[in-house]
Write a protein that binds this DNA or RNA. Sequence first.
DNA 1: GTCTATATAATGATAGAC
DNA 2: GTCTATCATTATATAGAC
Lengths: 225, 225
Amino acid sequence: MRSASSSPGDRVASARIRDAAIVLFGRDGLERTSVRAIAAEAGVSPGLVIHHFGSKENLRDACDLFITEELFGRKSALDASRLNEQLQRWLADVDQFRPWLDYLARMLIDDSPASGRLFDALLGSTRSTLDAQTEAGLVRPSDDPDARAAIVTVSGLASLIMSKQLSRVFGDDYFGDAMVRRMTIPTLELYTHGLYRDDRILEAARTALAPSPDNDRPTPKENTA
Amino acid sequence: MRSASSSPGDRVASARIRDAAIVLFGRDGLERTSVRAIAAEAGVSPGLVIHHFGSKENLRDACDLFITEELFGRKSALDASRLNEQLQRWLADVDQFRPWLDYLARMLIDDSPASGRLFDALLGSTRSTLDAQTEAGLVRPSDDPDARAAIVTVSGLASLIMSKQLSRVFGDDYFGDAMVRRMTIPTLELYTHGLYRDDRILEAARTALAPSPDNDRPTPKENTA
DNA sequence: GTCTATATAATGATAGAC
DNA sequence: GTCTATCATTATATAGAC
């Protein structure tokens, strides 16, 4: 397995540049990262970065491609099980894969061309996983499986995107074990027993959204934020 | 109520500049927005922007302050009910408040000094709302109320941060009614009945995380992403 | 493949007139 | 308060030597 840290000498320069770019783009963001900084991180000259990738934008595309291929494999077909397995691996060794996780989080919030494809793939994977688990009797059926998959997807990604905030709140460094341990059981608890004690709020919302032409109130969201 | 759109002439220049900055920072991000672009949006010269705010960074701080004061009020004390009420108002009229919602989402992902305070306030508000609802018998008690509040908070914010992705998936323009309507019932469904049919996965995780010194596996997250 | 040196454009910020 | 003109810095990207 290729290391995510940059140890100059063991890879060719173009790979070192790409890896350095992933680290810095993921850590500081695309705009805050200069070609010079990438060159310094990779131990090469700024000119070589452009020589290999043509432009900063092309380098970003190369990083997007690399990360998505690491996640999904070279095959264009979406393999939900491989994606889940790969994500598990990254999350299981955060110290090593943090740059890739950071880059992934950046991809999801900087809506680039690759961003939409990535989100669609994650959503599709969640959808098919939930379908399989529903068929296996593990997960409850849903009236709107697509919407449910979207909710589960964005909720899962939320911990990734806001991992810095969560780590700080839990007195942990950045996506450390303490945070993961602290979140796991309550998350599964929520997904097992829900939050509300009875159907009152759900039924109230159903009534409010029921067929009634003059009803265009903006749907009671009931403190879900 | 002050309008969030920029119609030059009805406000003093410094307010127009600040509002323009909120629009552009929220839409394009801090780094992609130049002082010149803000000046053009506000209908003033670039020099005036610096004259009023000293620097781009100070202008950003002023925007952070403005948005947080709009959310929480001028009082430093955290008032959960006011915050919830204000968020409802913004979400109920997305067309008007989109710039503020966008700016809010940017604040949460660009971890600035104000970002941590904002997140803490949102978390605290969620926590106290859940506490009140628990006491009222509406919400189930939790073994780890802080962790549960964190999960609910980031999950709620996830829809805000990834609203562009969600809108696209639901064939809607950007946080439109279709998306909100489509998400509301499944979200409440999830919060009412949960996702899993029984306790198997929860119990498996509890066992895996049970007191066992040699067990430092990275906690099975079971496809929540 | 890799470097140094440089061109060119855009940025944040300043100075001074009005 | 507001503008125009400009400075100094930094950015990406190019050119050509080795």
